[in-house]
Design a binder for these strands. Structure first.
Length: 468
RNA sequence: GUCCCUAUCGUCUAGCCCGGCCUAGGACAUCGCCCUUUCAAGGCGGUAACGCGGGUUCGAAUCCCGCUGGGGACGCCA
């Protein structure tokens, strides 16, 4: 029997959970669930000058919103410094690492000189044989073999070969005693029994360095799978200038977490021609084999379409719950105001197929909830001319006598009035729509009126008829 | 500069591993038509791609080489 699959998502808390990170986390989760394995969250906060607790919280919040549930963690590397220290000492003791006394300024200067002369900006290994100088600050460098090749057998990219002499002696412990990424990632992945490392392909170049560390400890490296990057519309690496990149910004813009997940999974992964997947389907179908090798451009329009699909395919009650915070935020309902869920669901139902985001939906909901509506000037000019007003007056008289204010009954009244006046139904419906909703576009006018109710409907008609 | 990855419609992709079924399929966007009380949703249809050059082969989007384009890495960041 194979050993249990264990994967991890290892963000560094130097920013919010962004689109790229979320997709990496998602692929890890899906891989774990598909293989009945475990998904571990590990916070890579060894850079204590840039990591913050706020960002840890933000990342966790983003993962929870997307329902990327992890099984173990979050583990913080800053809580594990003793472990790394003992391993670094082991390497030092075995002569596989050495103390380097070069200062940051010296190193920077040498890099610049190298760049100016067109040489590779590689550390020259000059401290490899230095005497121990107890009174001087030092970093610990890994003694990278300078001959031979290191092969990465990547699950996604295939076999990738690196010349060891391209790699330099990387720093594994900073002069302040804290360990660095390429070192701790190896120690942790072994310690946490990670079987598959699935991460962005910006890490592919780090992989041979890490494999060399595994070898130095005589450990078997896990399997690697490097995911292609996500780019912006200009094919440059996705960043703030391409618009919203933080996952939580999408929540604020009225996106559903399942829609974002569905969009993200299709960036680099495909299952035939299928576009919309349930979570269960994703777990069932997900496979590293179906992941593409080339970078993908983030396309907000398709995400918007998918969000619309998810809104349509959810139940009205689900969407009503989801839209409520947006109604409060937009000031359409007060925080403490009671709003009838069943009624709200009815209203939501008429708007589902016309809303691509919850923000849009909440905005449209205004004319159901508010007492009065603001009428669009252009709509008014076009549909609330004297002739139409006269029709509205006749309609109002008819409506006042109705007891069953249902869409079915309303339609009958509208139709017979149209016949009586020998005009098209649209000649009544459109002015009414403007009077009731304030605009020329809305769900079917009969259902709108039913939901708005007799009281508000008559008030709004009166206001228009009286020229208010 | 060096190293690494990559290359099918504007975008996401199927097909490529196991050459012929590809006159290259689907989706978003876009355009047109239908439905219709408006707007949507939905249905139908259109425009639109194998980066270039060499091979191999009876035959290449599919295999090989080169070029070009794009991305990434080269940090006491991760």
């Amino acid at each position: 029997m194979d050993k249990e699959v264990r994967v991890r998502f290892a963000p560094s808390p130097t920013g919010h959970l962004h689109i790229g990170g979320a997709r990496t986390a998602l692929f890890n989760l899906l891989f774990a669930r598909h293989n009945n394995g475990k998904f571990i969250l590990r916070i890579e906060d060894t850079d204590t000058t840039r990591s913050t607790d706020e960002y840890i919280e933000a990342i966790i919040q983003g993962m929870k919103w997307l329902k990327l549930d992890w099984d173990e963690g979050p583990f913080r590397q800053t809580a594990r410094f003793d472990i790394y220290k003992s391993y670094a000492e082991k390497l030092l003791g075995e002569g596989k690492a050495y103390r380097c006394y070069c200062s940051q300024e010296e190193l920077e200067q040498r890099r610049q000189e190298a760049a100016a002369q067109g040489r590779p900006p590689k550390y020259d290994g000059r401290c490899r044989n230095s005497e121990h100088q107890p009174d001087k600050p030092f970093t610990v460098r890994f003694k990278t073999p300078q001959e031979g090749q290191t092969i990465v057998n990547d699950l996604i990219k295939g076999v990738v070969e690196f010349e060891n002499n391209q790699l330099d002696d990387m720093i594994i412990v900073r002069s302040d005693g804290t360990p660095t990424y390429n070192f701790v990632v190896v120690v942790d992945d072994i310690d946490m029994k990670i079987t598959h490392i699935i991460r962005g392909d910006d890490h592919l170049n780090n992989t041979p360095k890490q494999i060399l560390i595994y070898k130095a400890f005589d450990w078997d490296p896990p399997a690697f799978g490097h995911l292609p990057m996500i780019l912006g519309a200009d094919k440059a690496r996705l960043s703030k200038r391409h618009g919203a990149t933080s996952v939580m910004a999408y929540e604020e813009m009225g996106y559903l977490p399942d829609a974002l997940v569905n969009y993200l999974v299709r960036l680099g992964w495909a299952y035939g021609d299928q576009e919309v997947f349930s979570r269960d389907e994703l777990i069932k179908f997900f496979d590293l084999e179906n992941i593409g090798k080339s970078a993908a451009v983030f396309n907000p329009e398709k995400l918007l379409w998918l969000n619309g699909q998810y809104i349509i395919n959810s139940t009205a009650a689900e969407i009503a719950d989801a839209v409520l915070p947006f109604l409060v935020k937009a000031g359409i309902v007060r925080n403490d105001e009671h709003i009838d869920k069943e009624w709200l669901s009815k209203a939501v139902k008429t708007l589902q197929e016309r809303s691509k985001t919850l923000i849009e939906l909440a905005t449209s909901l205004k004319y159901y909830i508010n007492e009065h509506v603001e009428i669009d000037q252009k709509a008014k000019e076009k549909f609330l001319k004297p002739d139409s007003i006269k029709v509205l007056a006749e309609l109002k008289a008819e409506l006042e006598n109705m007891s069953d204010f249902s869409a079915v009954e309303l339609e009958k009244v509208f139709v017979s009035l149209a016949e009586k006046l020998s005009i098209k139904l649209g000649s009544i419906a459109q002015p009414v729509r403007v009077a009731i909703t304030g605009s020329t576009a809305s769900p079917g006018i009969f259902e709108v009126i039913e939901i708005v109710g007799k009281d508000k409907t008559l008030k709004r008609l009166s206001k228009v008829i009286e020229g208010g």
